[in-house]
Amino acid sequence: MPDIDIRHPHTMEPQQARAAVQEIADKLTERFGVTCRWDSDSLHFDRSGIEGKIQLLPTALHVTADLGFLFAAMKAPIESELRRVLDKRFS
């Protein structure tokens, strides 16, 4: 079971939602040095201590992440920031 598991609704068209997820990926890369790659409708991201994905569904996003030891200690602020960004981009 992932350490972080968020489902966030959206009403965007697929291309628009994909572009918004890519913006989030760009910020993750810039701020945290993660590597991102698309696999169909899922954006996978990872770096030492974090591995996760943002799955684009027709009416929702599903964000999951496994956190290593150091990041597990910061689970609450990481999850809070993810929810804030999702609310901002997809509400």
Rank of each mutant, 00 (worst) to 15 (best):
Ile6Leu: 07
Ile6Asn: 04
Arg7Asp: 07
Arg7Leu: 01
Pro9Arg: 02
Pro9Ser: 04
Pro9Thr: 04
His10Arg: 09
Thr11Ala: 13
Met12Asn: 08
Met12Tyr: 11
Glu13Gly: 08
Pro14Ile: 06
Gln15Phe: 07
Gln15Leu: 10
Gln15Tyr: 07
Gln15Asp: 09
Gln16Gly: 07
Gln16Glu: 11
Gln16His: 13
Ala17Thr: 01
Ala17Asp: 06
Arg18Ile: 00
Ala19Lys: 14
Ala19Asn: 07
Ala20Pro: 00
Ala20Arg: 15
Val21Thr: 07
Val21Gly: 08
Gln22Asn: 11
Glu23Lys: 15
Glu23Pro: 00
Glu23Gly: 11
Ile24Lys: 11
Ile24Val: 14
Ile24His: 09
Ile24Glu: 10
Ala25Tyr: 00
Ala25Leu: 01
Asp26Gly: 13
Lys27Leu: 14
Leu28His: 10
Leu28Met: 15
Thr29Gly: 14
Thr29Leu: 11
Glu30Val: 06
Arg31Ile: 11
Arg31Thr: 14
Phe32Gly: 10
Phe32Leu: 12
Gly33Ala: 07
Gly33Lys: 03
Val34Trp: 12
Val34Asp: 14
Thr35Ala: 15
Thr35Pro: 01
Cys36Ile: 05
Cys36Thr: 14
Arg37Ile: 03
Arg37Lys: 09
Arg37Ser: 12
Arg37Gln: 10
Trp38Ala: 10
Trp38Gly: 10
Trp38Val: 02
Trp38Arg: 09
Trp38His: 08
Trp38Glu: 13
Ser40Glu: 12
Ser40Trp: 01
Ser40Cys: 01
Asp41Ala: 06
Ser42Ile: 05
Ser42Gly: 04
Ser42Glu: 09
Ser42Asn: 07
Leu43Asp: 02
Leu43Phe: 01
Leu43Tyr: 02
Phe45Thr: 00
Phe45Arg: 04
Arg47Trp: 06
Ser48Gln: 13
Gly49Tyr: 08
Gly49Ile: 03
Gly49Pro: 00
Glu51Lys: 06
Gly52Ile: 01
Lys53Tyr: 06
Ile54Gly: 09
Ile54Asn: 11
Ile54Asp: 04
Gln55Met: 07
Leu56Gly: 05
Leu57His: 11
Pro58Ile: 09
Pro58Cys: 12
Thr59Ser: 14
Thr59Asp: 15
Thr59Ile: 03
Ala60Asp: 10
Ala60Ser: 13
Ala60Asn: 02
Ala60Pro: 00
Ala60Phe: 02
Ala60Val: 00
Leu61Asn: 05
Leu61Val: 08
Val63Lys: 06
Val63Trp: 08
Val63Leu: 15
Thr64Leu: 09
